[in-house]
Design a binder for these strands. Structure first.
Lengths: 118, 118
DNA sequence: CAGCATCCGCTAGGATACTG
DNA sequence: CAGTATCCTAGCGGATGCTG
């Protein structure tokens, strides 16, 4: 079932929409390096993120087909997140963004005292 | 003069901050393909953008060192914008975003009826 | 022509409390 | 543990009008 888009489509902005949320790149990066993570683990690995935000961003990433969500019927509940194969295709993009970000901070003559891997 | 950043620094989000504005990638893309453009030309090339927004985004891009602004002391006034050498370094990043955006729209089984080059 | 100045609505993002 | 359910706020983006 194809979804018709009649509005003008720009591939670049489409990508930025997907990465647009405040925490999405963090989620993607964590899942890329760790493989599978539970909700609580993601929350620990991403400083300052609230439950609401993490949930929301995960749902949006899931809907975009980048993250898969697996629920175990247990008590207490367990939910595991991982990247889909399609989510893995984002890695070169994230790498490009990362590389340019470092270049850019040098170009602005900024001294970065604390570097966050994300 | 180095500018100290004491907050945690993430290169990816730093890049997304630069590209974050709603119209910035359009501006960058237009300048990349056309070279030098006046304010009014940019406005014509970017549908639906308001003066306020275009001015604001241009100022931010200028401050980020990506766009250079040249004012001619004439009547009526003329202002020309172009990419700085640093701004040109963004091209591979934009290319990566563009490529993935096209891939992604296919993965979502979307029919794109109108494609905007940006 | 290339802009400021002003006002204004919307919504992304956040704080807090509650639940299966 | 992994969420929902409210409520609230800052600020992005937009509409409109004025000026050197």
């Amino acid at each position: 079932m194809k979804k018709e888009i009649h509005a003008p489509f720009c591939a670049i902005t489409a990508t930025l929409d997907v990465l647009g949320g405040k925490w999405k790149v963090f989620v993607l990066a964590r899942l890329a390096t760790h493989g599978i993570l539970r909700f609580s683990q993601l929350q620990k690995l991403i400083p300052n993120v609230t439950q609401k935000m993490l949930t929301q961003q995960l749902r949006e990433l899931e809907e975009a087909g980048l993250v898969s969500r697996r629920v175990y019927a247990e008590v207490p509940p367990r939910v595991e997140y991982s990247l889909t194969t399609h989510g893995l295709t984002l890695q070169p993009v994230l790498a490009a963004l990362n590389e340019w970000g470092n270049l850019h901070s040098q170009a602005l003559n900024q001294v970065v005292t604390e570097r966050v891997i994300c």
